[in-house]
Amino acid sequence: MNAETLGELFYAMLRIRLVEERIAELYAEQEMRCPVHLCIGQEAVAVGVCANLSPDDYVLSGHRSHGHYLAKGGNLKTMLAELYGKVTGCAQGKGGSMHLVDLAVGFLGAAPIVGSTIPIAVGAAFGSALRGERRVAVAFFGEGATEEGIFHESLNFAAMKKLPVVFVCENNLYSVYSPLSVRQPAERDLMAIAAGHGVAAERGDGNDVAVVYALAGEAAARARQGGGPTLLELTTYRWREHCGPLYDNDLGYRSEAEFEGWRQRCPVAHAERTLGARGALDEAEIARMHAAIAAEIDDAVAFAKTSPFPKPSALLEHVYAQ
């Protein structure tokens, strides 16, 4: 991957990291009164995949969607306003962190029922194919979602219709505090499941943005050329607690050593090192990036905090389309 592209991907990952860290920091003020599922540690998947998409392509996500939304080009100000429950939020405060949306960039929505947006992504691809368009639809989901029947039903239909879908499974080894060992057979291979459905599949290091970018590039190209759906399984790791701003390794469901091992494989630091080694990024440039992103976040936080709440009359609005 050339240094320019990697530099862009690095900046996008750093931006997501710093947004999530700011949310974690501000959460203690108790002004964001909704559950938040942070994606710190998993930024490379969101960025590597979405860098292959145009604003015309669709993305759907689940409970851990901040990174997907931002990587797809979602508006930061309206995202933070949504977390603060403000009328200027991307869902006018009605959705919160678990229901981000930005139609201007093809982020069709996120919903936290595990697996539930996978068929909706297939439907977006189906609808756009019926309309004679060539848009790609991406479904982001965790490995927990592959245990739901609806995941398999979605693969089946997408394969049968050769739909332009990329199924992106972020395998971070846990569903809340439950390890894979109590949820899936040990020898079973997700690649084989995809193959059984007639869906192309690849596995890769979800913490290496260049790897993700390359795999997603092939998948998106296949989709655009009418080659049908692809499943990508990208291994990665969630750093913070499942839901909320803190760390939770002290609970004992995973070891500090395991966490430390994954922290060493930080996707942002990895890209930074690679760029540094190639002489494409120096300390001054990194400092400039941090400052620019911090200023952007300051602005967005101020926007969110000073925005008004929805009016009481909004309660009964939007129940039915008028």
Binding site: R33, C34, G85, K86, G89, A91, G93, K94, G95, G96, M98, H99, F309, P310, P312, A314, L315, L316, H318, V319
Partner: peptide
């Protein structure tokens, strides 16, 4: 409950 889904923002949930 009023005839609408649960809103997330406390500004509306407080009236729900």
């Amino acid at each position: 409950l009023p005839e609408c889904p649960t809103p997330t923002t406390p500004a509306l949930a407080n009236r729900y």
